[in-house]
Design a binder for these strands. Structure first.
Lengths: 226, 226
DNA sequence: CAGTGATCGATACACTGTATCGACTCGTAC
DNA sequence: GTACGAGTCGATACAGTGTATCGATCACTG
């Protein structure tokens, strides 16, 4: 068929410009807005106006995308302070802060080794601030603080989600968790637990986090100044 | 059609007897053998000789199955010892041990509040052993140890998996992580980190875990005996 | 200008969790 | 003894997933 009667090719749109940063940003926005389980390659590609397979030019798997997301958040974690204790506390608070802004981070933290440039940069800052600490003690100290933060943040976010799930409509709450614990404790099988839950002061999340962190830092201090 | 020429109904098999315990056991075996991501309701139902939808008579969602799996493992976590410190240490070691036997536990720990009977029983044991501790201090103390354990175990399992992934064939290892860090450190952007990784003593996982735990327990001791 | 590699996205595959619904069984009321 | 109602079981279906494959198209090199 001659060109004259052949229609123009269907206006093939210029392929949307793409790079890892754009992809990761879109993924993070999705995760922030709708949770991690709502992040799919199809949706991410969708908001970028692109076919799903296009992403595989920039990442090799979804796992890699998640790794990139975590590393991107590490860019926001900039511990500051004077001396090792300040910096470790700052690291902990900043990580917790990041997880508050990106709840999905709690699902990913500690799930895979963090070796991205921003994670390494954070590590560098921290380790550099531990210059006056015995070299052999640096790794276990940083590791322990990281471990504590990961676990504490996970628990905190998990609790927050559980509350939100029931709290969304008061009915559900009334019909589920509170009374469940009531009934369970009423069996008398967990007297000590029941006593603590009923009679002890209920700390908020901030205080709980800080107390544990202080304990850990105290213990570290005792150990490295020995 | 008369019965005489109508074939027997196709030997409808007696429905396999089922209960939550059987389901959970099958799921745990799957997860132990092939990892958590290989656990699907179809497969679990399959090994039980049952259609997938049958499971929904016993659980309301896959999440609930995972909750049951975690609680089942909590039955193996029986902290023992004299005094609060022994018991907290025992709790930590037992949890870590459980995660070594069921690596998928690392993916689930801290992901959702643990309110199953076995988890509560573990909590009861621990809290009971903290009888001589100020009531208001019990919750944050237990929470901090739990947080540390969750994070430490996660990191440990994550590292183990990463090693295994590359270690399965030596080629991959040589081509991926080791040299990656080499090259990255060679850029000179992470001098302090590089120094630690190169010059510091490399502790094994057991020691790393114990050092952090000791720090935390030391800090707790200082705080509650104040 | 021909050919060659890279890039793009449509299609396809195997699989997921779970809603729906018809077929069937069984205990009970008449 | 029979009709009915409730409940159980599993086949089918649906919407969605990550990713392999591959033909079409593009930009660039000889």
């Amino acid at each position: 068929m001659l060109v004259w009667e052949r229609p123009e090719p269907p206006n093939r749109p210029v392929p949307a410009p793409l790079d890892r940063e754009r992809i990761v940003r879109a993924a993070i926005e999705s995760a922030d807005a709708e949770g991690l389980e709502a992040v799919s390659l199809r949706k991410v590609a969708g908001v970028l106006g692109v076919g799903p397979m296009r992403l595989y030019g920039y990442i090799a798997s979804k796992e890699e995308l998640l790794d990139l997301m975590v590393d991107a958040v590490h860019a926001e974690i900039r511990p500051v302070g004077d001396g090792w204790r300040d910096v470790l506390r700052s690291l902990a608070e900043a990580t917790r802060q990041a997880a508050h802004e990106h709840e999905w981070l709690a699902d990913l933290l500690g799930g895979r080794p963090q070796l991205g440039p921003h994670a390494l940069a954070t590590g560098e800052t921290v380790v550099a601030a531990l210059g006056d600490v015995d070299l052999d003690a640096v790794m276990p100290v940083v590791a322990s603080v990281n471990a504590y933060v990961i676990g504490a943040v996970r628990r905190e976010i998990a609790e927050r989600r559980a509350e939100r799930a029931t709290g969304l409509d008061e009915k559900r709450w009334q019909a589920s968790l509170g009374p469940y614990l009531e009934r369970t404790f009423a069996t008398g099988r967990f007297p000590a637990l029941a006593a603590v839950v009923r009679d002890a002061a209920h700390l908020d999340a901030d205080d709980t986090f800080r107390i544990g962190l202080d304990c850990l830092l105290d213990g570290i201090e005792a150990r490295i100044s020995r």
